[in-house]
Design a protein around this nucleic acid. Sequence first.
DNA 1: AATGAATGAGGATTCATTCAT
DNA 2: TATGAATGAATCCTCATTCAT
Lengths: 206, 206, 206, 206
Amino acid sequence: MSLDKKEHIIDVAIELFAEKGFEGTSIRELAAKADVNLAMVNYYFGSKDKLFEAMVEYKVSFMRGKIEELEKDKSLSELEKMDKIVEGYVERFLSHPEFHKVLQQEMLVSPREEMHKRVMGIFKQNTENITHIIERGIRKKVFKKVDPQLTFATLIGTINQVLMSKSLCNILTGKDEKFNPYTDEHFKKRIINHLKQILHDHLLLH
Amino acid sequence: MSLDKKEHIIDVAIELFAEKGFEGTSIRELAAKADVNLAMVNYYFGSKDKLFEAMVEYKVSFMRGKIEELEKDKSLSELEKMDKIVEGYVERFLSHPEFHKVLQQEMLVSPREEMHKRVMGIFKQNTENITHIIERGIRKKVFKKVDPQLTFATLIGTINQVLMSKSLCNILTGKDEKFNPYTDEHFKKRIINHLKQILHDHLLLH
Amino acid sequence: MSLDKKEHIIDVAIELFAEKGFEGTSIRELAAKADVNLAMVNYYFGSKDKLFEAMVEYKVSFMRGKIEELEKDKSLSELEKMDKIVEGYVERFLSHPEFHKVLQQEMLVSPREEMHKRVMGIFKQNTENITHIIERGIRKKVFKKVDPQLTFATLIGTINQVLMSKSLCNILTGKDEKFNPYTDEHFKKRIINHLKQILHDHLLLH
Amino acid sequence: MSLDKKEHIIDVAIELFAEKGFEGTSIRELAAKADVNLAMVNYYFGSKDKLFEAMVEYKVSFMRGKIEELEKDKSLSELEKMDKIVEGYVERFLSHPEFHKVLQQEMLVSPREEMHKRVMGIFKQNTENITHIIERGIRKKVFKKVDPQLTFATLIGTINQVLMSKSLCNILTGKDEKFNPYTDEHFKKRIINHLKQILHDHLLLH
DNA sequence: AATGAATGAGGATTCATTCAT
DNA sequence: TATGAATGAATCCTCATTCAT
């Protein structure tokens, strides 16, 4: 049960799911692209659905825990925490753009009940953690009385919007068709600056 | 070719595509839910792909031209225009939430080349119109030197985030599972207020 | 019940059946090419099968009776009769090449029981008439003791071979792809000469 | 990929295509008659069209090369070569009558572009080889100045005519409905004799 | 542990035909 | 008489999955 092969299949699956969606990707195609036997996918993962679950499980482990730690950190102000969160999110989303596209699809459509709940759970956790930070900032009178939930929606929504599609992103930012925004350091900074700026403007009393 | 029946099929299609995605929806299922003969879909629309195109064409006509008019209106300040845009967008997106979910999917995955370009074109138009307004505000020194494109991404991304999934939205806003945010007047106002506030904070000099 | 329209449909049907076969031609396509309503074909002819029958009936009437008359003609020798038959056959086959292609198909495959028998009947009649002429020639000692049936097969088979496909015929005769052998007067004479020559060689004592 | 099963499917396909034509034969029917799963045909051959191609490829290999060898043989006279060709053709056509019916159909109608060209190519090769032999006979003054191409058409057309349909053949030769001419040794000799005789009569100077 | 062969269920689409008008 | 709308059956093909080895 070569772990490498499993990982390889998952990587190819992410690519294909991001490009064509879960339903639009056939196991045949996946096996061909991953250069493994057609029966391997079912042999390793049990079914196409379970491959999806394994994929989420495998990738999600990379992106957990960061925010929880942040929240507990007493040495940082709420604004500094928000800045860290912006940096962390942008960093993470842009370094796994395809996986996040798959997750976005999973949020949009949800025939896989269990998986949906799973992803929802993670999202809920993040929502709560970040709204708590904002609420504390409000209580401490360093933040204005904003709408914490929708402020989080703005943060995550802006990144998702950019992440939605490479060509959409290039239209948005006026770049050339072939430009890959997700690997561009300048672009990453541009997003981080924008998000920090807009959150500062929105949150801070002046 | 009873127009009512065509419209009915399109309405059911939007529902199903929003719920299960284009690939995840079978014509069989669609015909069953719309209570029409299986062959009707191909009879009316030619193919599943063309049904999708007809659907977009049909719905898009409802939402065109508003922003162009707005831009040309000399009597409104840039800030007033942005407020109008927020109201218009939220109004429109929340009154056709399922259709917009389908469009979001189309942006995420794109096996339908032609349709993809079509939807991209609309998006591009909107991007340009709104960034123009922001840029004019900047030139007139009523707006700060913000990033116009990403500011638009924030606007549209926030709405999309909320629209992504009913249950996601309810998690976000802390509502009950059964609550329908898209038909709730209070919720609509909440989003509009948040967006206006965040744009004011971000755009205006103080 | 405009007769012109019926004839028109039949003409278009022959074209299409010759080109794509009976099963390979859809009523939709036929109606489109004939520029009539889809339901017209069934309305006029009852069904696709009956259209075929009507087509055969309609065209066959043109080509009947000639040989019977010939056989009874006492003023001509057997050889002269054979020459007349060659001329008549070539003339007739080459002026309705598409219809004869359809008949050839009908001989090759036969899902239409009734029609098959009908066409067989005509063929049988022709076989008998011509073999009678040959047999009489043999009895009169003007013809050699040939195989009358297979001699007829040679006559009809040679024409059919040429008629099978335009491009096949052009390969056979070394002509250009675009050449239409069936409307060429020289080619017609070439076939007639060949057939007369080969029958003379085969039939006549020397 | 059990070769036996592939061959079996091809054999059944030939039977059915000969009987009902390509378009007239459904994969369902084919699978049922061959007693294999419906999906097997596509599994083995990829598509109905490719099954056809495989069928031709498979059978054609049996019947290649014979005539080329013959042409190069210096020890035989042109007349002897023609006799050999007659024997070879009749032998081959009558031992695979159904396959040749399928090929005849392919010549008559041609929606399968590639296959058509393929079969045309074989035919062209045969045409050239045989007309070369006849032409050499003419140059050597052992044959009369006949029309080489149409003489070949007569040879092949006669066989095709007989092969067209069992019942047609029985009508032609005055046999009973149930008689199978293609497996009858006497009948084979009858055709061979007729063809040799008619070619001798036609080709030889006297 | 790994895989080529095989399969049943379901995919979209096209068909000839019918029906209401 | 003529036709647009509608339909059930059948088309080919692809799917995820399983099984024997």
